[in-house]
């Protein structure tokens, strides 16, 4: 069970709504699957140039290239690396641990896409070297704008397994 306090839960939904139709992204930290701190991270996707977009898998890359730069964040996110490190540093200083990354899907369900899984695995291959715990991946779906859905997943061996999430 992954536990997210009500105020953070609401803020994640506000974050997603505030950026729609663009995807938002962030990090959740705490201890033992219980979130105590949220970090909003900037989605810098629109700032990536053509060469930098090559970090995405081929199907997503083709889709991204068909869109104007400012529209690309409607279907993808890229966390700002500096902000991510700043959050990691704050997490370390507070003596808590990274629990999850989160992002929104503004027009699709709250489950990881093929791209989410591919890029989560890419991070997974680097994670051990940084002595970080395995994060969950939380997705906020605004597919039904009036009824946002939040789900959490563990992504390993290129498979996503849902982990029950509770608002508390």
């Amino acid at each position: 069970m992954f536990i997210i306090p009500s105020d953070i839960w609401e803020d994640m939904i506000d974050h997603a709504r505030g950026h729609a139709p663009r995807e938002c992204c962030g990090m959740l930290a705490g201890t033992d699957n219980r979130v105590t701190r949220q970090y909003r991270i900037t989605n810098i996707l629109a700032k990536l140039n053509e060469a930098e977009l090559a970090r995405f898998d081929q199907p997503k890359l083709s889709d991204l290239k068909q869109l104007a730069p400012e529209e690309r964040a409607d279907i993808a996110f890229q966390m700002d690396a500096r902000e991510l490190s700043q959050a990691q540093k704050d997490i370390r200083q507070r003596g808590i641990e990274l629990q999850a990354f989160y992002h929104s899907h503004t027009m699709s369900p709250a489950r990881p896409s093929a791209t989410d899984i591919t890029l989560a695995m890419e991070f997974e291959h680097c994670r051990a070297a940084l002595n970080l715990p395995q994060p969950l991946h939380v997705i906020v779906s605004l597919e039904d704008r009036d009824h946002p859905v939040m789900r959490a997943y563990r992504i390993e061996a290129s498979r996503a397994t849902e982990v029950p999430v509770r608002r508390q």
Binding site: R55, T115, A120
Partner: peptide
């Protein structure tokens, strides 16, 4: 020393 190059996490919605 150990140097690690790590792309920040990214992803994207379903097509």
């Amino acid at each position: 020393d150990e140097v690690s190059i790590v792309p920040a996490i990214a992803g994207g919605a379903h097509d």
